[in-house]
Structure formats: C-alpha cells, structure tokens
Design a protein around this nucleic acid. Structure first.
Lengths: 385, 385
DNA sequence: ATGAAAGCGCTAACAT
DNA sequence: ATGTTAGCGCTTTCAT
C-alpha cells in the first residue's frame, strides 16, 4: 500500500479494475456491473478512499460549490439569511461557500471578480444585492456564469433575481398599525422621499417606503417629512428612537400648552397642535430593536406609549422584550427559488453545445417570496400572548 | 488569442517568458528581474488572467483555505464568533470556509472526515468543540493535520486549543451580582452539579458553573439545587425564566404568609422563609435574553425585581431592552490565537522533511482569551447610562 | 461493460 | 535569472 492517501488508482488496483471503472462505480454512473460496483465500493471503504476534489475539479470544471455573498454575518437578518441559504444548498448535495462584504462594494466586487475561486471554482453564485447596484458593474464581472441576485429590485432584471415582498409587506405592516388604532405613524428607514419620487424606485428601502406611505395615504393619514426618521440598523435605530421620543415629548408638552391656552385665550399660536406619534414602522427588525431601545432611554414604553413593527422576521424578535411584531419573510422559500435558478442554468450549460461563449442563453427570471404578518407584543401587547 | 479563459501559458507567451517565470513573477517570488516581473504583471492584467486555484492546489497541495466549523449561524454567539474568525482569516490572506453542524456530532464528524475537501483542500481547521468531545473521535479523524479546537476545555489538551475564560468570567459575573446587593442568586445553565463533581469538569458549562458556585460560596451565599435552572438558548431560557418567576412569586407569597403568621403564632411551619431570588447568572447571553423574556411573561421586571447577567458579550446585548450585562469575551483575540496556532503548524509542515507521516510534531498548545465585565441595565439599571 | 490514452493548468525540481 | 521536464489525480474521449 502506498505511503500517502489512497488515490483512485489504488482503489482500482485493489479492486482489480481500471481507474475509469472505479471512477464510474464511485459516482454511481450507469454501465457498471453491480458486482463490480459493489467490489469497488467495498475496497474504497476499506482503504478509506476520499476523492481528491481538486483533481476532479481541474479535469471536469465542475465543483458543486455555490458561492454565497452577504453583507455581514453578525446581524439578526443576515445570520438568518445565511442559515436558510446554507441549509438549502446542503440539502441539494451542493457545498455552500459563504463570504461577507461588510457592506463594501469593493469587497463585493472582489468576491465576485478577483477572488481566485470566482469563475473557476464556483458552479453558481448568490449575492444579496442590497446597496450594490451603484458600485458594482455586475454585467462586466459576470461572464455568463450562473448568478442570482437577492432583493435587487430591478424593474427589468438583468440577472435572475429573488425579491422580498417589499412594497406589499410594508403596506401590510402599516395597515396593521392603523388597525391597532394608530393615527400618527412614523417611518424609520432611509429617509423621506416624496411620493412622486417613489414611483420608479428600484431599491428595497424605496419599495418599503412606497408601501408604507401608500398605506398611510389610503387611510387618509399624513405622509410627510416630519414623520420620517433615518434608521437601518441598531445604532442608527437608537438615534431614530431618540428623535422620535423627543418629538413625542414635545407634542405632549405642546398639547398641554394648548390646553392651558384654551383657558387663557390671549396668546397668538398656530391652531391645532400636532398629535403625538403613536405608531412606528421600521424598515427592518434590526432598526426596530434599536428604536425600541432608543425610546426606552426616554422612558417611552412599547406598546403602551407607542406601537412598533419591523420587517424581516428576525429570529430574535420572538424572544426580545417586548417581542417584536414584524413582517416575516419566507427565507426558506427564497433559498429554494435561488437554488432553482442556479441549477437551471448549470444544467443548461452542461447540456449546451459549449459554443455559446457568453451563454446569453435564457432570459433573466424574477421571483418574489411570500410573507406573514406576525403580530407580537410590540403592537398588540401581552394580551396576545 | 485562445478561446477560453487565459491560462498561465497564455500570459507567459504574451510576455515572452516561460510559464515558470510567469508563475514566479505573479507570486512575487524572488529571483525575477523587476522589468520581467513588471511585464508579466502588465500582460496578466491586460488579459484579465486569473490563476486556476484548482490546478495550483492539485500541484502544490496547499490551498490557503481554513475550514471553520461552528454549530450554527443564526445565534447571537455564533454569528459573532464567525464574524471574528472570518475577519482574522481574511486579514491574513487566507480564505475562510465556514460550515455549520447544527449541533449534530455526526455533522461535525462529516465536516471533519467525510467532507470531500477535508484533508486535501484545507490547510487547517478550526472547530468550536462544545458538546463534541463525546461523539467525535477527533484523533482518529484528524491525521496530523493542523486543527484548533475552540473551548474544548480539556485539562490535558490533545489538540491546540483556545479556551474561553469560563471559570474566571463566571466568577466575575456572580461577584458583580453580589456587589449589586444580590443575596439569593440563581444560576441558569446545564443544570445543577454538586461542587465535588465540578472539581475536574472539562466542559465549558461545567467550568462556568464552577466559577459561579465558587463565587457564591466565597461570599457565604448558598449554592444548591433549588437555585439551579436549565437554560442554554432562547427557548430553554424562556422556560427557565418562567420557572424562576414562579419561584419568586411563591417566595413572595410565603413571605407574606410569614408576616401574617408572626401576628397569629398558632401555625406550625418551618422557620425562616426562603428569600426571593434577586439575581440571576445565565451561562450565556442567548439564555439570558430568553430568561428576561420569560420573566416578563410574569410581569417581573429586570433589573427592578431581579438582576440578570449573561456571558459571551453578544452584540445584541447592547441594544436590547434592558441592555444586557455580560462577560464580554475577546473573540478577536480568540481568532488571533487560533490562526497563530494553525499557521505555526502549517509552516512546520512545510519545512518538515515530509517523512513524519502522522507528524506528531509539536505538542498541543493551549491558550485562554481575555474578558471584560460589561455592566449594563440588566444589573445596574438605567442610572448607568 | 470495461480499458487505454491523453491532458486539465499549474508548480517542484532540476537544468542552464 | 530564466527555461525545461515531469506529473499532481482525476475524468473525457475513444477504443475494445
């Protein structure tokens, strides 16, 4: 027996067959007598043979590895997204290779283009495209290789894309706040945009804002700059929480003034005080956690003083205090869609005549995943428990 | 120009040198004239040459890929651990390959042994060993390849190991509760063990329990089964929270009874009622979040009614409500230690005469990372903010 | 159903 | 400082 690790030739020799037959037997390819296959498998088992993927990949050009690119690992949203993608990839017998960009377009570009694996090792790539569109020339980087974008939100997709139910989900969230009796609803996200500018947005945050503002206007509630706050993660969410708290306290004070004024009608004042904010839609759960935290810094309680709902369905929302109402998106479905799209293209390429250099091939497809509105303490209180 | 992707030969030809020179130039190896190197690099750039790692690995037997194995992605602790390990690996010019086992020893075994990459592709492996010792015969699986265990807690390490400051950190956490004025402190973890059995524990949870119970006994406070609850994640943590809440309410009721009894001294009763729990040490932050949540279900507030401290330093602890006091472990240091251990072995192997088959080589080393006690609202209230 | 030949793209080892 | 040779372990192709 040779010194190092057993190779396919060792197995073949010990089984009394050629390397080719051994290879076919091990891969379950047809055209191998059952008895032969059994013998090969037994020998491989005995020798503890392990295929050398490196050689296999070199020759065959296929790796069964799927490249998964996300912004970061340590956030409530991404850790769950990765979990879903990795699980689905593994269940299909493929190997997930996960990479993070830390929100840097350069890192994303590197992951896609300069990474020595890209284009040679990976059978397909899945990238969470949020905030990527600007900085990364995908078409120039991707030479017809299977690529799926997550939440790219393009109206005319240039790549296979799985989108979140951004507009509908946000609309449902705000409608839920309205049903809870909220009259003055704040939006925490990327900042205010007038409705006209939202008509053709192609970003996740823009679409969520469109859905949220649409729900407000449909209900005859105001949508303006004064109720828009910036928050997209825990830190900025805390700041948004502080800003909202101050606005609420000011409104309370003003309302107290008004009451006082009504008794002594000598003062000149704008008529009708602004009512205090009583509901908050956050563009994602991560920001919502921060907002609740920020409100608490001012002694404002959720949902007693103001109701809060997030978006995404982060795992943590079920065990925070209060538990977080949210629009739970179906990430398992997302993973299924994404891998369907990848495998479809891989198979096409395998069957293709090999001539189509940039294999324009099939047009880009698009899918949108489902969602569930999950009411929890942060909107309906503990009565619901 | 050839049809497919440019190979090293294409670059060499275009630069008017041999493939070997081109290879050396691209790898920054010494012994290449500067002008030659410049020319090669320019040509490679122009052709958009990308090294074929698969071929390179096949020939050289090195991949620069580090295998990182953790239990899961979507938990406050692991997402941060992965973040640190991946960042450090990347900064050293190595490529992290992250895999999750979902707490299955079989999956861990598979990742380490059956995974087609293992032992051929990876230059080194880092595995979070918690709850692994029993099910996985590491020595049989690992054939002298660089392997680092995280928190294996073995007294006599068989592999390079980086441990958490389990005992000291837990001790510090409980001391903090005591300094806050707690007299009756519950422990939420893997369950009660008598002190004698804790003398030689070799598990993370056992060591934390040893530290916690030691701090109690040192302060003359009781350590017994009645104040030990089972909780190690959010769900079990919630259950522990419920159990503790019920114990607290019962103690309150009993104390009310006692007061009543003292007025009507006719009843026979055990003397001295049990005081209510006023402090809780949780074996990790994940459980602590659940405990706080479970307490809230009973209307028990933290820290007003009971103080809570966790362990790990999960990112979320800084933006939950209340913010979570914790023993923050230095995961960046952990990543540095782990990669130092790996590279040390890789280098040794590279320099080795290649004869040492199972390269027993260097003895296993062990390191323990540092920690910081972070007091937050859950123990000291918002005065601290 | 099985085998033989050839070579994927690169780099270690040895020339020059 | 550069070039030549050989072959890593596998699988595609073509024979038998």
């Amino acid at each position: 027996m040779p010194s190092g690790k057993p190779t396919l030739r060792d197995v073949a020799k010990a089984a009394g067959v050629s390397p080719m037959t051994a290879s076919n037997a091990l891969h379950g390819k047809p055209g191998v007598k059952d008895s032969t296959r059994a013998k090969v498998l037994a020998v491989a088992e005995k020798l503890d043979y392990r295929i050398n993927l490196t050689a296999s990949m070199l020759k065959s050009g296929r790796s069964n590895i799927i490249h998964i690119i996300v912004n970061e690992f340590d956030s409530p949203f991404y850790s769950k997204l990765v979990e879903s993608l990795v699980t689905e990839t593994t269940e299909r017998g493929l190997t997930p290779f996960v990479e993070q960009t830390r929100y840097s377009p350069d890192a994303a570009k590197h992951a896609l283009a300069n990474n020595p694996f890209s284009g040679q090792l990976f059978d397909g790539e899945i990238i969470h495209a949020s905030g990527l569109n600007a900085g990364v020339p995908l078409s120039a980087i991707n030479h017809g290789r299977p690529l799926v974008l997550i939440d790219a939100c393009e109206e005319t997709p240039t790549f296979d894309t799985v989108n979140f139910p951004n507009e509908d989900g946000a609309r449902a969230a705000v409608q839920h706040l309205i049903e809870c009796g909220c009259h003055r609803i704040a939006i925490v996200g990327d900042g205010y945009s007038p409705r006209t500018e939202l008509a053709h947005v192609e970003s996740s945050s823009g679409l969520r804002l469109r859905g949220a503002s649409g729900a407000l206007l449909d209900a005859g509630l105001p949508y303006d700059e004064s109720t828009n706050f910036i928050g997209y993660g825990s830190d900025s969410g805390i700041e948004a929480g502080h800003a909202i708290a101050e606005a609420m306290l000011e409104a309370r004070a003003q309302s107290a003034d008004d009451t006082a004024e009504s008794r002594s009608p000598g003062t000149t004042r704008a008529t009708g005080s602004t009512p205090a904010i009583d509901g908050i839609f956050c563009i994602n759960d991560y920001a919502a956690f921060g907002v609740i935290r920020g409100l608490a810094d001012y002694g404002i309680r959720v949902p007693d003083d103001v109701r809060v709902i997030g978006f995404d369905g982060a795992t943590a929302g079920s065990y925070t205090t209060p538990t977080l109402s949210t629009v739970q998106v179906d990430l398992d479905q997302l993973a299924q869609f994404a891998l369907d799209m990848i495998t479809r293209r891989v198979e096409q390429r395998d069957q293709g005549d090999g001539r189509s250099d940039e294999s324009a091939g099939m047009p880009a497809t698009r899918a949108t995943i489902g969602y569930t509105l999950v009411p929890r303490e942060s909107t309906v209180g503990s009565a619901n428990r």
